[in-house]
């Protein structure tokens, strides 16, 4: 799965956690925090995405990314590494 496909998966889970974003046009440059996701929301979105990908990697591996695009890239790299 490409980084873009993972980005779409993250966007889908973000809408699931914050239904108010249903009509938002997600960009790779969007940060989850700026979209209104608190720390627990962000953990939830990440875990839902890891579960969808069946990727068992500690969440601490994804503390660096500043936006959804970078998070998608980081998850993609971990998938490749695993």
């Amino acid at each position: 799965m490409s980084s873009d496909a993972i980005f779409k998966l993250i966007a889908q889970h973000t809408v699931e956690v914050i239904p108010e974003l249903e009509d938002h046009a997600f960009q790779r440059s969007d940060s989850l925090g700026n979209l209104g996701a608190n720390s627990l929301d962000r953990s939830e979105i990440l875990m839902m995405t890891l579960e969808a990908l069946d990727l068992k990697v500690p969440a601490v591996k994804f503390h660096g990314p500043k936006n959804i695009g970078e998070l998608a890239d980081a998850i993609h790299e971990q998938r490749v590494a695993v």
Binding site: L40, S43, E44, M47, M48, L50, E51, K56
Partner: peptide
């Protein structure tokens, strides 16, 4: 069977 994916909200 999937404890690694337990939703973080459970802690709350």
């Amino acid at each position: 069977e999937r404890l690694a994916f337990l939703r973080p909200t459970y802690a709350m």
